[in-house]
Nucleic acid binder design. Structure first.
Lengths: 408, 408
DNA sequence: AGCATTAATTTCACTGCTCGAAAAAAGATG
DNA sequence: CATCTTTTTTCGAGCAGTGAAATTAATGCT
């Protein structure tokens, strides 16, 4: 039983966490700004920053450049993260690509390796080996960061098991049911975390658009898959273990089109790239989905639809309908104030919008609370990276540095 | 901006809350049991109980009867809630009935008034007047509890507005868009809370079955409406304002059967009592739903289905299918470990089970994580009351008594 | 009856945290 | 160089929680 007891230790941890969180959100700050930002007294900020500086978690910045312009009184000295006290390795794994980024504790990108991925990749190279190879390569190139590596975080698609340590299923071939996180964790003596891509999108959106930082947002990825992440008033839904936001595999049509996951009638089977192409080319909807769709083919279809070609527009209509009813159904359980469409499918948003809105209009919640704001947001790469980055750094802040040194 | 700053006050509040919470869950306890139950030290328990006793929130029980059997050492003195320091008025409003219960701070039922409700009730008597009349009646009969009334809580069906203070829509006629909570709050100078019935069912289930206390459970009410409440590892989902768990009005069939809410294709339109009857009697599914269904008619249909009459079994099959796909779709967003079916429809569970399971089997999440345990639970009256009771008492514990006297 | 034993509570001495107020520091201004 | 302004630090107080020791209140033996 986790003890929820509050004592002076937990007070310190909480308030140190508040300070680190403020720095994470707002960047380097003066102690005074920290005091107003966190609500703590100046005296406490002095004590806390003193400790954190002593432990080298943060450091005073040289007063040099910073736009201090000119003030009347004593000039503020900013404190900011000590970039060299930690580093994190962030893998973004995709059906066709993998990217490993090494970032320091200040969130600055240090180095990066990209590798193409094919359905054969993880059959030939076990995932643990694949990841370990690349991570070692990066460590060799960046010895000073390698020495302080504190986390490995991996963005994946699929369904995680209860404890979030392995994939039970994934559209990325041969990645599921391999205990690569524990293998990596022991090999590198560092915690390894798995994150669902959909959820990272939600986290990333929160950080990239300040207006969304504390809102309730559903972020829908449309592309080679369909996925969703949600934030509720600034909190990410689903703490680690509650694995499921399988929006893309929500049933749209009982016994409908065959999905890559093997089930029938999933939203993805209508709205993902392969689903739309299948509809457009009048391939029977029970045909096995293509394992991967070249980008130019999807883009070509969008262009044809935009020029009004009927088979193409029809395909996007069906896709919009699937996404729209999925959203309408989701909103019966959880209704966000904003809905973000991201990913390659965002480029086809205009083609789906009418059907999405029509489907949403059929939801009672929308009639009562008003329609949510649905907007498309191109390029999902940065939200995922940003989400992975911030989530991992925040974890280091709160788990490694908010507590007293030596604890845990 | 709410300050999340932690100081010695918040520590005390947290730990007092822990003590009150333990007493709420486990009943009267000795100080030693309280220490092990909360994780606090004996010294702190002594200090906290001393304060609480001084403030008359709790009291030492007479050692009398209690099964102290025989122990070797100093006998424990139990402490328990001081029943007389507070009372709450709990309204359960339904399409055909309203019940007002007066309970004391110990959770003991003091008095109760039941009144039939018809579609005309709130047209003739404004809700605020209706509630005020009954509450005054109960206060007159129980002056000592009336003097310490601390909360009025109302269980309703429908959609609440963002701040949870009024109904934006309700199947109970003339109840929506009437500011009765604020009127009652000023008239009785007491906080008035509105709770969705579905959510109370979830809360109640948690308290009535210890195995569910810390589980993730979806509780589905099937009867004159279809509604759902969810708990996530013991936490009720949706804090007050996030109004929507409109499971009954999740779309099942685009442009399908007409629902009482005016939309088409809602789960309720197939699975509620009126929906099943409409199907069974081959009334066109676009016919206006009956405002209320007499219980004997619904029970009669169940009996006919159980004896194998085709039109009746068909109706329940459709109902099961609607509920099943609804659950399957919900599970793409949130997957509970248990699903509880309650309400009159629980009696027809056997008739719907096959279709529910078939629909669940079509969900990817179920294939991966295994099917959730779906069980029916007759009589929903007590879960609602229990949920309303515990939620309200807990609120008094944490808001009124966990903080220092004088604060807030 | 008297004394050892046992278990529940309370008391005590100490530590850590936050806070407000006052003091100190560090430039800017004139 | 004295004054003013704004940022930080220092200091004393107050409050919580904790472990260890002391106290309390029964039971069991002799």
């Amino acid at each position: 039983m986790a003890r929820n007891v509050s004592d002076s230790d937990s007070v310190r941890r909480q308030n140190r966490g508040l300070v680190l969180g403020a720095l994470r959100v707002q960047g380097s700050l003066s102690r005074t700004a920290l005091a107003t930002g966190t609500g703590l007294s100046h005296a406490s900020i002095t004590a806390i920053t003193h400790d954190l500086i002593e432990q080298q978690v943060i450091a005073e910045l040289e007063p040099g450049e910073k736009s201090d312009g000119r003030g009347r009184g004593r000039p503020a000295t900013l404190v900011g993260f000590n970039r060299h006290i930690g580093a994190a390795a962030l893998f973004e794994v995709d059906v066709n690509r993998s990217r490993l980024s090494l970032v320091d504790y200040g969130g600055v990108l240090v180095d990066r390796i990209e590798t193409p991925v094919t359905p054969a990749t993880f059959a030939e190279t076990p995932p643990a080996v694949f990841f370990a190879q690349r991570l070692r390569q990066l460590q060799a190139r960046n010895p000073s960061e390698a020495a302080v590596l504190r986390r490995v975080a991996i963005s994946v698609q699929g369904i995680l098991d209860r404890d979030g340590q392995s994939l039970k299923w994934s559209p990325i071939a041969h990645l599921a049911n391999r205990p690569f996180t524990t293998e990596l964790a022991t090999a590198f003596a560092v915690p390894v975390a798995l994150h669902k891509r959909g959820r990272l999108l939600a986290e990333g959106a929160r950080w990239l658009d300040p207006a969304l930082h504390d809102a309730s947002v559903a972020t829908v990825f449309v592309g080679s898959t369909v996925a969703m992440g949600m934030t509720f008033r600034g909190q990410i839904m689903g703490r680690g273990d509650e694995g499921a936001t399988e929006f893309g595999h929500m049933n749209h049509q009982p016994n409908g089109a065959l999905c890559r996951c093997g089930m029938r009638g999933c939203i993805e089977a209508y709205a993902s790239d392969y689903g739309v192409l299948r509809t457009a080319y009048s391939v029977p909807e029970t045909a096995t989905p293509a394992p991967a769709v070249p980008q130019h083919e999807y883009d070509g279809l969008i262009a044809r639809a935009e020029s009004g070609e009927r088979t193409a527009t029809h395909a996007f209509n069906l896709a919009g309908r699937a996404v729209g009813f999925g959203l309408s159904r989701m909103m019966a359980v959880f209704d966000p104030s904003h809905i973000l469409i991201v990913g390659p499918g965002a480029r086809a948003f205009a083609l789906m919008q009418a059907e999405i809105n029509a489907a949403l209009a059929s939801a009672l919640v929308c009639r009562i609370n008003g329609m949510p704001e649905v907007v498309a947001h191109r390029d999902e790469k940065e939200p995922i990276f940003k989400g992975l980055l911030m989530k991992t750094l925040n974890e280091i802040d709160q788990d490694d540095f908010a507590g007293l040194p030596g604890a845990r």
